[in-house]
Write a protein that binds this DNA or RNA. Sequence first.
DNA 1: AAAAAAATCAGTCTCGAGACCGATTGGAAT
DNA 2: ATTCCAATCGGTCTCGAGACTGATTTTTTT
Lengths: 216, 216
Amino acid sequence: MADTIRVVVVDDHEMVRRGLISYLLTEPNIEVVGEASSGNKGVKVVKETKPDVVLMDLLMEDGNGIDATKDIMSFLPECKIIIITSYYDDEQVFPAIEAGAFSYLLKTARADEVITAIQKAVQGETVIEPKVANKMLNRLRPKEKMPHDDLTEREMEVLLCIAEGMTNQEISQELFIGIKTVKTHVSNILSKLNVQDRTQAAIYANRHGLVKSELK
Amino acid sequence: MADTIRVVVVDDHEMVRRGLISYLLTEPNIEVVGEASSGNKGVKVVKETKPDVVLMDLLMEDGNGIDATKDIMSFLPECKIIIITSYYDDEQVFPAIEAGAFSYLLKTARADEVITAIQKAVQGETVIEPKVANKMLNRLRPKEKMPHDDLTEREMEVLLCIAEGMTNQEISQELFIGIKTVKTHVSNILSKLNVQDRTQAAIYANRHGLVKSELK
DNA sequence: AAAAAAATCAGTCTCGAGACCGATTGGAAT
DNA sequence: ATTCCAATCGGTCTCGAGACTGATTTTTTT
């Protein structure tokens, strides 16, 4: 393991790249063989340089880190991709892991943390930021049952209509069913969501992010 | 103007500090005289070093950039504070300017942009990132009239109750008024918001962020 | 094959929502 | 002083919402 570790840095913030590279310059057995300012450019650079490790940001203008990670894994699966990002959303972490990311650090990481993450990566050891790990556990932990989990498919459709402010009449036309049926569904929805009326149901749906289209 | 410009860098991400400092090292007339990893530490460092320019992040763990900027301006008003942050929310920009920030850059800034911003700052020239400037103009520009701008104070109170799913009866008790009065208000609200019923009004209020408490 | 769940619809009944019309009071603007 | 408007309340009327009970059909699960 006396070989130098070849690293590519991908981040749209030049100052972050400079910072990371300055970290790595202090390590004699690490060599920065390329850098890129976007996911798409990153893929290209990796294709050319075939590095051992990639430091990858997630949020970028042209081609995000998730897609770039998938791309890279498809043609260079032995490459270890270390995500380095500002956020530790549940939303971000899992897609990154799925895409093939090997480790997950935050931008608050100090120089030594980044270095050890790289060295461990080439040895096949994953490093996950504790905060991020917590989020992951929360996600894997049987999440608390939400009232709307009990809703059937049809009931969910009706609820979404309610959440758009439609009347029973309008819903019946929208879903091609009788108004009586709509009323049955609505009653079931109200009791399942444990709310008193359609207005509260609409509020529930909107606040719990059940509604797709967010138009301001 | 042959004097060297004394600069302090405040950012909780060490890699960003390293990046910024690496930018400035290339300029002979700029000297980094201090750095800090939080707003509060930043204030302390500035107190000790009395720099000409401070590069300041906004979002930090211990003492945000806004408060730090205010502090610094109170005891070192001739100091030029340049905000360097990831976000360009309306929410962030204005408080920063009010606090006394002199220029406003994004973390996407290249080395030369940071350098010129610093040099212009000591000459009394402000630099505002175009994207940020746009946001500012949008804020200052007479914003488009929203339906709920027409609501009276009382009507807004009633609307918020509706947005919580309360019935007219409950609202009348909440606001200590007769149910008839509530109905009058509701009718006026519906017509002003241009919606058909209280459910749509509740949806409107929630989607337009009129409701304060966001409980998941 | 049998049982359970989901989706559909009918009838009836009560009550709250909201429209429409009108009225009084008090404060702010002109 | 007068006008305007916000806030308050009354009466009446209609209609949709939702509860409750019960039924049929289809799909899924066991």
